[in-house]
Design a protein around this nucleic acid. Structure first.
Length: 276
DNA sequence: CGCATATCCTGACTGC
DNA sequence: TGCAGTCAGGATATGC
């Protein structure tokens, strides 16, 4: 389930493989994948040249030379895969973009939560020019301590819930929320508004450090291999996870057992000795 | 408004 | 071995 580091890895590879290439043919098989508008609208991109691939939070933004923007979100099980022209279609392939002399880009998604849509906005301008994404907060790599202090003040919801709230900051999901809380030495189930200034500063540093390091390692690929890169290869940040999925294992810092903390219907992995 | 909960969906896993 | 039940959790809708 791609979060910011995985989506950023996809973005970089997409730029390398497809920017400057002409889109030859679009096929949409999954009605649910293209659900915001008629699937045939995507075919109007045929003949367009890819100018850039941007990202805001977990959204990929394909910016075409015509000025149009194709947005993609993988949600839980979506994958973007680069394949040779006409290679056998794997199950749950919902869309295929065939590029001139660059093979096919395929959207594969068993659970069909992911989506593709052509934005009513225009490329070239900042991400704000995609009106469908207006509700998102700033990209998580762009936020600093001042912003976090402002949006967390007075909030009673658990810190982890707010870190994952895309309206506050965009790009953090389940795995990195846990790793960020550990990096900041803060309890994920603590009311977010209870943080004092030095703690918010630690949080801002952890957001940046964890997301940066994870992107350098090309993201996290778990045993279910729900996230793999364009070539189907795994990331390697899972080896650096300090708490996520490590219940029962000793904390790398203090040796105390990592536990699964439950709060409401949610849960988080944490070291309760290191984290407040 | 803020916060919690149900929903979408398939595949992997658990327990009988 | 098979099969029902549970869980995974990103975004959105709705309920309080």
């Amino acid at each position: 389930m791609p979060e910011l580091p995985e989506v950023e890895t996809l973005r970089q590879d997409l730029c390398y493989l497809y920017v400057g290439r002409k889109l030859e043919q679009v096929q949409v098989m999954g009605r649910r994948t293209v659900r915001r508008h008629s699937p045939v609208l995507l075919a109007s991109l045929e003949g367009d040249v890819l100018g850039n691939v941007g990202r805001h939070g977990k959204y990929l933004l394909f910016e075409w030379e015509s000025g149009r923007v194709l947005a993609a979100h993988m949600r839980m099980s979506g994958q973007l895969l680069a394949q040779g022209l006409g290679a056998p279609l794997q199950p749950h392939t919902h869309a295929v973009l065939a590029f001139e002399a660059a093979g096919e880009l395929r959207f594969v998604d068993p659970r069909t939560f992911g989506e593709l849509f052509l934005s009513s906005g225009v490329a070239g301008a900042p991400a704000r020019s995609v009106p469908e994404l207006d509700h998102l907060g700033p990209d998580a790599l762009q936020v600093g301590p001042g912003y976090l202090e402002r949006v967390l003040a007075g909030r009673k919801a658990p810190l982890k819930s707010l870190l994952m709230d895309q309206r506050l900051l965009a790009g953090i999901g389940n795995i990195y929320a846990d790793e960020i809380c550990f990096g900041a030495r803060l309890r994920p189930d603590e009311p977010a508004g209870a943080l004092v200034r030095t703690e918010v500063r630690r949080l801002a540093r952890a957001v940046r450090n964890v997301l940066r390091s994870a992107t350098e390692k090309r993201g996290s690929t778990l045993a279910d291999r729900q996230y793999v890169d364009l070539r189907g290869e795994a990331g390697s940040y899972q080896a650096e996870h300090r708490v996520y999925g490590r219940a029962g294992q000793p904390c790398a810092v203090c040796g105390q057992e990592i536990v699964l903390v439950r709060f409401g219907a949610r849960h988080a992995y944490a070291c309760l000795r290191c984290q407040r």
